[in-house]
C-alpha cells in the first residue's frame, strides 16, 4: 500500500529516507494506546481553540490528529522533529467531541523520538538538561524564581512585573508555608528521594535519558546509586 504523499507539499526533510519516516510512523501507530487516542477527526478545531500553546506558537493539535489520520508520513516526521515540543502536555485538547487525545498522540510521538535517539530530539532536549537533572534528582523542576519573562509568554503580560517583584510580593503574603517556597521547592526528604530513584531505575526511565544524553545519564546514575547504596547500608 502506498502513502498519502500529496505531491506538491514541500518536504522539509527530503534527505531522510521515506522508509525511515515510515518506520517511525509505524512505531507510533503500533503503540497500544494509539487506538484510544485517535478515533476520527472532523476537523472542528475545538482542540486548537482550547490549546494554550496554539495561541503563542505555530502549533496545532488538530494538525497532529489529521496528519496521523491521513497517515501522512512526511508531515508526521516534521511533527516528530518540530511540533511536538510546542505542546505543554496540559491535555486541554481532550475536550474533543470525538474523544480524541491529540496531547496523548504527542506523548507517543515524543516517546518514539526519544527511544530512537533522533539527533534533532537530542538537540531540543539539550536545553532541558538542567530541568531533567532537577526532576530526576529532586522530583521537582520549577521553582517560582525560575520564571523568566522572555521564555514564558503564556504566563501573560504581567509575568515581567511579577518576576521582578516576586521576592517582595511573596514576603508580603502572610502565610508561612508560601513565604519560603522559592528555595524550599528542591528540598526533598531522603525517603522520597530514595523511592523516586528506585522508580526511575525500575521503570526504565533512566535508560530513556541515556538515549538522548549520555553525559547527563552518567551523572544522574552516579548520584542516585550512591544515595541508594547509602540507604541499603542504613537498612
Amino acid at each position: 500500500m502506498t502513502d498519502w504523499n500529496p505531491g506538491k507539499v514541500v518536504d522539509r526533510y527530503p534527505d531522510v529516507p521515506y522508509e525511515e519516516k515510515q518506520r517511525l510512523f509505524l512505531e507510533i501507530k503500533e503503540d497500544p494506546r494509539y487506538e484510544d487516542y485517535l478515533y476520527g477527526c472532523y476537523e472542528c478545531g475545538i482542540c486548537v481553540s482550547a490549546c494554550p500553546s496554539a495561541r503563542f506558537y505555530d502549533y496545532s493539535p488538530r494538525v497532529i490528529a489529521q496528519a496521523m489520520a491521513r497517515e501522512d508520513v512526511d508531515r508526521i516526521y516534521e511533527i516528530l522533529i518540530e511540533d511536538i515540543w510546542n505542546c505543554a502536555q496540559c491535555f486541554s485538547c481532550v475536550r474533543c467531541p470525538r474523544h480524541n487525545n491529540p496531547g496523548g498522540l504527542v506523548t507517543l510521538i515524543r516517546e518514539v523520538a526519544v527511544r530512537n535517539g533522533i539527533q534533532e530530539t537530542r538537540d531540543v532536549l539539550q536545553g532541558y538538561s538542567r530541568v531533567i537533572y532537577k526532576v530526576m534528582l529532586k522530583g521537582n523542576q520549577v521553582s517560582p524564581d525560575m520564571l523568566q519573562p522572555d521564555f514564558f509568554p503564556d504566563w501573560g503580560p504581567w509575568v515581567r512585573e511579577f518576576s521582578e517583584n516576586m521576592q517582595v510580593w511573596r514576603q508580603a503574603i502572610p502565610v508561612d508555608t508560601l513565604r519560603g517556597v522559592t528555595d524550599a521547592a528542591w528540598r526533598t526528604d531522603d525517603k522520597t528521594l530514595r523511592e523516586l530513584y528506585t522508580i526511575w531505575f525500575e521503570t526504565g526511565n533512566i535508560e530513556i535519558i541515556q538515549e538522548v544524553d549520555e553525559g547527563l545519564y552518567e551523572l544522574l546514575v552516579d548520584v542516585m546509586e550512591e544515595e541508594l547504596e547509602e540507604w541499603e547500608e542504613e537498612v
Binding site: T2, W4, N5, P6, G7, K8, V9, E43, R62, V63, Q66, A67, R70, R75
Partner: peptide, 11 residues
C-alpha cells in the same frame, strides 16, 4: 487539502 492548508496532488 484546505484544513491542512496546502495544495495537493494525489495519485
Amino acid at each position: 487539502d484546505t484544513t491542512m492548508g496546502r495544495p495537493m496532488e494525489v495519485t
